[in-house]
Design a protein around this nucleic acid. Structure first.
Lengths: 343, 343
DNA sequence: CTGAAAGCGCTAACAC
DNA sequence: GTGTTAGCGCTTTCAG
């Protein structure tokens, strides 16, 4: 069964292509009668316009790109859900790209986004990204760009983020109040702004209480492969001054911390208390239930998408970048209860 | 900064558009010298062809659609990863659509896929999908279609699935061997082929051992909203002949089973043993560690994508649909150990 | 080896 | 209220 196009449809109807085109888009120039006839005929012949011809003509693709470091993290799944909801409601299509935390891939993907393929870009930058020229290039091409969650510190574009510093501060305070004297922060990258801000908040809190023996050993970097990261945590847990509190900056590190603790038979929370930045759905049923700083992933996605569409659809109303901060919430569970509460 | 197009580029080079076009695509018709000149010039001016103009001309979009019920399930995240890897390697773009388990949405999305927007479709059908006319329509339009994981039983198209029946059979046998006398199967939909096959295998095993008091009460349907599903499981756990073994057919039901057990203070595995069809990364660190039938999600994604690209790129070699079965593997953990092993 | 011209399918000025 | 025409940016015969 071959697809019918506008010209063929017009011929069959004994009308011009432009009349049919207008009729299908409910133009006021066309009489109700012919509109009706055209619509019925189009449905009968299963006609729908070629989107790329339309895009070419209108210079609008009704498509946006979503660039993520990965999709395995629950956070990004939830964010995609939010983005997708907004996009679907507005009749936009979603092109998904994964940078796999690589700057080089991220850069290549952005090149692809600047040739008219998409009307806008939503991005959460890779952990390797420190240079921003590839992002600047997109902005120079006048393609709307909105960051969500992972945004560069010093880049002039709209973004939707969470209160990382405050939450980092909070986690340290909480661990200390629960009796920790040697808490550490597990970061996945010194370059990644979210980790950096969370770590800064954490450090500030620890230093404020004056319990730190060595301020340079508060933050540990678990970059590299999964295996390297696991090993790093393992070494930390086997070291002579093993931490009695751990803050995992991302979901993956939380899981790895639990894995290592289980293997090494280190009891959480008796020997090590844990708090994780995470949206893990299984947090309440882990062993023990994991205390989390739960980020508003879904809302971050919807908000970022809304900001983007606002810019795309009402470009004249856009004056300057907007920075929206959506707070995370602390969910206290057994992984960080104080000693006095042990049963 | 405005984007440059082919015509402008050609003018600047004092060449015709066709020569420049050919040069950029390394045609043998063009001399090495001019090719070099053109390429350098193109890079310098940051030229890249408008993909929609190319698509329109070539009637190829270098884009495929991936239609999923949801993205929150780990299985689909992993599958997307696999699909994305193959697509990226071949220079294809990925359009993602979520049906949210709704037949109506799935149908609408498929309409969108048959107007030239995509060169092929990968789909995992919704739990509501029983009618296949929308799928047939796509096939009639000659658009390559490959199912992964969730495929209709009786539809003539390529698919990549797992050994659901056998695994269902296995779970029942395993629970019974571990001492269960009243195992049940939690299905998310009677219509969904994967659940159906898993349930059929399960039932066959239970009936084979002759322990079933009421064969009609082996499978419980937890469809509807999250809350309804939770309530169903709760009622099951509070009923007078509470099951002593549960098989969760999908990730969500596994999590809910754990949630309910935790709330109701029902001990897993002492009071109820659990096995879940799931790719949950956190299975080993749940309380207790969850025994899983782990599906080859990533490989299913890559294989399905490969089948699709084979059809797209070598349509003449395609003779008939292929059905690939990738086996799942059983990961035994504490949620289903026999009584004799309790410590 | 290079260029002219047609046309992919559609929309939007502009005529009638 | 309907039709004619030009053209979005590119590729591809076909001529030279």
């Amino acid at each position: 069964m071959k697809r019918i196009n506008l010209k063929e449809l017009a011929n069959l109807l004994n009308l011009s292509t432009s009349s049919v085109s207008k009729a299908l888009r409910d133009s006021h120039e066309i009489s109700e009668e012919t509109k009706k006839k055209v619509r019925e005929f189009a449905v009968k012949h299963n006609y729908s316009p070629n989107p790329y011809a339309t895009s070419l003509r209108k210079k609008k693709s009704k498509t946006i790109a979503v660039i993520l470091p990965e999709v395995a993290d629950n956070y990004f799944s939830l964010a995609i859900n939010g983005i997708q909801k907004v996009a679907e409601a507005r009749g936009y299509h979603l092109l998904i790209y994964l940078s796999h935390e690589k700057y080089s891939i991220e850069k290549a993907v952005l090149e692809e986004c600047s040739n008219g393929r998409v009307d806008g870009v939503l991005i959460s930058i890779s952990s390797e990204t420190t240079d921003h020229s590839h992002l600047q290039k997109l902005v120079n091409e006048n393609i709307p760009l909105v960051f969500f969650d992972r945004a560069p510190e010093d880049f002039n574009a709209s973004k939707v983020i969470t209160n990382d510093y405050d939450c980092g501060y909070f986690t340290a305070m909480h661990l200390i109040e629960d009796g920790c004297t040697n808490p550490v922060f597990l970061s996945m990258s010194s370059a990644l702004p979210i980790c950096h801000r969370r770590a800064e908040g954490f450090k500030a809190a620890v230093l404020a209480t004056g319990i730190a023996s060595d301020p340079n050993k508060l933050v540990h970097y678990c970059d590299g492969t999964e295996e390297e990261s696991m090993k790093k945590i393992q070494e930390l847990f086997e070291s002579k001054n093993r931490p009695d509190g751990v803050v995992a900056s991302v979901e993956r590190l939380a899981i790895q911390t639990y894995m290592v603790a289980q293997e090494s038979e280190i009891n959480i929370p008796k020997e090590v208390k844990v708090i994780a930045f995470s949206t893990l759905e299984t947090a309440p049923i882990l062993n023990p239930p994991l205390s989390t700083i739960t980020q508003p992933a879904y809302d971050t996605g919807t908000k970022a998408a809304e900001l983007l569409f606002q810019r795309i659809e009402k470009p004249l109303q856009y004056t300057q970048p907007e920075c929206v901060v959506l707070p995370s919430i602390f969910m206290e569970r057994k992984s960080c209860i104080p000693k006095s509460h042990f049963s």
